[in-house]
């Protein structure tokens, strides 16, 4: 009687393990963080891209406006891919684009913008990448949609046409 009980439990445990492994297989093992966080915008003080003046985050992000914060670098290849969508987004007046120049140097970055066009209203430079960590970013490119001092959506990796349509839907 006792041994039957134990074996029953054993079989049950293995069945549960089976189901869990089976389900686990379907999950991807690539880390995808929650993209709809309502987090406060972290404050930062960074040097402006064009000159050495200091830009304070509180002065950029005002209430009741949409902001699109985009981390980019001239050495990053996917950034070139998303650039055309950024240029399209620039045409929209109800959103302001903020460029976070990530671990870049001025010469390469400015020639990158000269070649492909400059979609940004403000560019700040994040020389050592620490400010991006404060935003919870993983790397380049990565973008955050900001409204009322909150991050309402984040995009990891280059944005595509669907993302662009989604943004345009939100800000309208």
């Amino acid at each position: 009687m006792k041994s039957k009980f134990i074996s029953l439990i054993l079989i049950l445990i293995f069945l549960i393990t089976f189901v869990i492994f089976f389900k686990g297989l379907k999950n991807s093992n690539i880390y995808t963080p929650d993209t709809n966080l309502k987090k406060e915008v972290p404050s930062f003080e960074l040097k402006s891209f064009e000159n050495d003046s200091i830009v304070i985050s509180e002065k950029i992000f005002k209430d009741n406006d949409y902001y699109f914060m985009n981390i980019w670098a001239s050495w990053c290849i996917p950034c070139k891919e998303e650039h055309e969508f950024l240029m399209k987004l620039k045409k929209d007046d109800s959103i302001e684009l903020i460029g976070f120049n990530y671990k870049d140097n001025y010469k390469n970055a400015s020639s990158f913008l000269k070649d492909l066009g400059n979609p940004y209203d403000i560019i700040v430079s994040d020389k050592d990448g620490t400010a991006s960590i404060e935003w919870g970013a993983y790397g380049v490119p990565e973008s955050f949609l900001v409204y009322q001092n909150k991050i309402i959506k984040r995009f990891i990796g280059p944005i595509n046409n669907e993302d662009l349509l989604e943004i345009q839907k939100i800000i309208r």
Binding site: Y102, K103, D128, G129, T130, S132, I133, E134, Y138, G139, V140
Partner: peptide, 14 residues
Amino acid sequence: DSEFAISLKLVIKN
């Protein structure tokens, strides 16, 4: 030694 890790190490230091 990825960019992410290098920045993160700097953040820890700061």
